[in-house]
Computed example of a mutant assay.
Amino acid sequence: MIETFSDEQLLRYSRQIMLPELDYAGQLRLQQGHALIIGLGGLGSPASLYLAAAGIGQLTLADHDRVDLSNLQRQIAHGETDIDTPKAASAARRIATINHDCQTRVIEQQLADAALLEAVAEADVVLDCTDRFSSRFAINRACVATQTPLVSGAAIRFSGQLAVFDLRREEAPCYACLYGENGSDDDELRCAENGVVSPLVGIIGAFQALEALKLIGRVGKAHEGLATFDGLQGEWRRLGVRRDPNCPVCADRWVAALSD
């Protein structure tokens, strides 16, 4: 585990190290940190690139899809020469051109069951950059089970949203407290069928990267509640989210914690 920076690294990260909230110690925590990004499309592309540039030491990149021409309008980790190649591998190659100090692990199959639980348990923070309810529900359950912070993002048309669930805290809600587990993939709006404006995914993906950086670097206060963005009006809204005592995912865990 790295304990000091080289002169080159000090210069590279100097604009962050000079921030009193982060400083040398916080930058070192980033270098020692590990983020799991599930989905390397519109949200995962900017999130992964910004985390790598900021100095996260290890990124696990999970995506079972391949790059398509229609992705290039918004998925900035990929280029024309990456068409028909796995998105996770394409993102890893792009990261290597940005910061060779960032170690990447590529997972080119859909994470599920024990493999998902293991990958989540190994990370300091999980970024859910998927676009299906089934994936989001499974990721949330794995994060609750392992008490791993979850940064969830979504974007469609001109609208985006972000929520952070710091599941290390006993009083924290989980994704299911907000949305339940009744939605199906057929019910969900997806950009493949409904469209999405290109910069919107950059806004939300960068927001996810910022919150992951804060959690790993122990900087400031993690975002609380649900933030929604109306790109057509240029307006943000913030809604409070409380833990649901009857949540189908996390209620039993909190009841057990209270009884200890």
Rank of each mutant, 00 (worst) to 15 (best):
L72T: 03
L127V: 06
G231M: 11
A138I: 08
L213K: 04
C247K: 14
A115D: 13
T104E: 08
A123L: 11
S90E: 07
D128H: 06
I139K: 06
L22N: 04
I56K: 01
A47P: 00
L43F: 10
W236Q: 00
V196N: 04
D244T: 14
Q9E: 15
T85H: 05
K214F: 00
R190S: 15
D185I: 12
A142E: 09
D65N: 07
T130W: 09
G44Q: 03
Q31C: 09
H64Q: 07
Q103C: 06
R237W: 03
N71S: 10
L117T: 11
D186C: 08
D166F: 11
L28N: 03
Q109N: 09
R169I: 01
L59I: 12
Q161K: 08
I37D: 01
Q208P: 03
L19G: 05
P86I: 01
P46R: 07
S48M: 04
G225K: 12
A53I: 00
D124W: 08
G220N: 07
S159Y: 14
A172I: 04
G33K: 01
G217C: 06
E21K: 10
T85D: 04
R243V: 08
E181L: 14
E193I: 11
L28P: 06
L258P: 06
N246F: 10
L69A: 12
D82K: 02
R237L: 13
L213Q: 08
L189Y: 14
K221P: 01
Q103N: 01
E3C: 09
T4A: 13
T81Q: 13
T228R: 13
T130P: 04
K221F: 07
I139S: 03
T104R: 01
A115E: 13
D185K: 10
A209K: 01
I2A: 11
D101M: 10
S259H: 14
A91H: 00
Q9S: 09
L10I: 13
L61Y: 10
G153C: 10
N99A: 14
F133K: 00
G217K: 08
G202F: 02
A192E: 15
G220D: 03
D101V: 01
Q109H: 15
G240S: 15
S70F: 07
D260H: 14
G42I: 07
A206P: 07
V126N: 04
H100D: 10
C247G: 14
Q9I: 02
C129V: 02
I98V: 14
L51D: 00
K87R: 10
R243W: 14
S184T: 15
D128L: 02
A53P: 03
L59K: 11
G160S: 07
D128Q: 01
C102H: 00
L239F: 15
F158N: 08
G183H: 11
A92H: 09
I2H: 03
I203L: 15
T60I: 09
R74L: 05
A52D: 06
N99G: 05
R12Q: 09
S134C: 06
G183E: 10
A89Q: 12
E118C: 04
A154I: 05
A222V: 07
V164T: 05
C129D: 04
E224N: 11
S14C: 13
C177F: 13
L22F: 02
P248K: 01
I76M: 05
R29L: 11
L178G: 12
P199T: 05
G183D: 13
T130I: 08
C191N: 06
P248Q: 11
P149W: 02
I203S: 09
A222D: 01
E8R: 12
D63M: 01
A123R: 02
